[in-house]
């Protein structure tokens, strides 16, 4: 086994059984995976495809029916591997009667961290996830987005080498999603390995280095995101400042080379970018309607 392999699964299978031990669902079938040091690895698939099962097996929350999961070089059911792991579950399953500080302090105590380091880290993390203003409120008063943030802080309390994120962006507003993605990228920059699963394709595409696509418990595709998404037989050109004649000329050139022109149009921005720019604008100039210039809605922007 290469030394930079952080997670390895060998023919990992999981069959859920009913009370009498009869097989009910084959949730995962002979999965072979390797997650390497320092990458962001995405597990992708529709609901019920075995993503969460894989993560639970890797964390030792479930026991495999057959096969083996090795996490940080140790069997997944061994407790000692947890020293270097952070885990953000599907929904942040935290104690609702604790406040943010108490939550992080409690989880921090489960690790072998000196008290002063722990206290300092609790404060840093609360600030980093932007909950400084609500750190004394019980989690039951938190909104979903706030719970996600404290959940992520909880997963980072031990400064782990491997962070496992189960649907990290669900329930977050677009700003939250952006921030979550930035945080994940920052973790990568800090040399951490991230394993995440999601069915939100855009998120995975944005941040993952490598992905595995699961369907009905079986691995369907595995590889680098940029390789997988490259469409070899098409060429995309983006240019600015071309007039009508120039565009016609390009069409002619394509026709001359027996190419097929698929589209040539003014691009639209993504809704995410639009939304983010509106919110930023509104924060910069509070109390005014946002004046994001958009060529298609000149009449409406006059009221701004």
């Amino acid at each position: 086994m290469a030394s930079d392999v952080v997670i390895e699964t060998r023919a990992l299978s999981k069959v859920y059984r009913d009370f009498w031990g009869r097989p009910k669902v084959q949730a995962l079938n002979a999965l072979d995976l390797e997650v390497r040091q320092g990458e962001i690895f995405g597990l992708l698939g529709p609901n019920g495809s075995g993503k969460t099962t894989t993560i639970k097996l890797i964390l030792g929350l479930l026991f495999p029916t057959s096969g083996q999961a090795l996490t940080l070089g140790r069997d997944a059911t061994e407790v000692s591997k947890n020293e270097r792991i952070g885990y953000l579950p599907e929904e942040s399953y935290l104690y609702r009667f604790l406040n943010a500080e108490e939550t992080l302090d409690f989880y921090g105590r489960l690790f072998d961290i000196p008290a002063d380091v722990r206290k300092a880290r609790v404060q840093t993390l609360i600030e980093e996830v932007g909950l400084g203003w609500a750190k004394r409120r019980q989690l039951k008063e938190y909104s979903k987005g706030m719970t996600r943030r404290i959940g992520l802080a909880q997963a980072r309390i031990n400064d782990p080498d491997l962070i496992v994120l189960d649907e990290p962006t669900t329930g977050l507003d677009p700003i939250g999603v952006r921030e979550m993605k930035d945080m994940i990228l920052a973790l990568k920059d800090a040399g951490k390995t991230v394993l995440m699963c999601s069915h939100l394709l855009a998120d995975v595409q944005d941040i993952c280095d490598r992905i595995a696509i699961l369907h009905q418990g079986e691995l369907k595709e595995l590889g680098r995101v940029d390789h997988l998404l490259r469409v070899a037989e098409e060429t995309q050109i983006r240019a600015a400042g071309l007039n009508e004649e120039c565009q016609q000329e390009i069409r002619d050139v394509i026709a001359r080379h027996q190419g097929e022109l698929l589209s040539m149009e003014n691009p639209t921005t993504t809704l995410e970018d639009l939304f983010l720019s509106i919110v930023r604008d509104s924060e910069a100039r509070p109390g005014r309607r946002a004046s994001v210039e958009s060529e298609t809605s000149n009449e409406e922007s006059e009221t701004a």
Binding site: L59, N82, Y87, P89, Y93, L110, D112
Partner: peptide, 14 residues
């Protein structure tokens, strides 16, 4: 039931 146990047993708690 609340699955808070997930966040506990994934820490190095015996």
């Amino acid at each position: 039931k609340n699955r808070t146990i997930y966040t506990i047993v994934t820490k190095p708690v015996r």
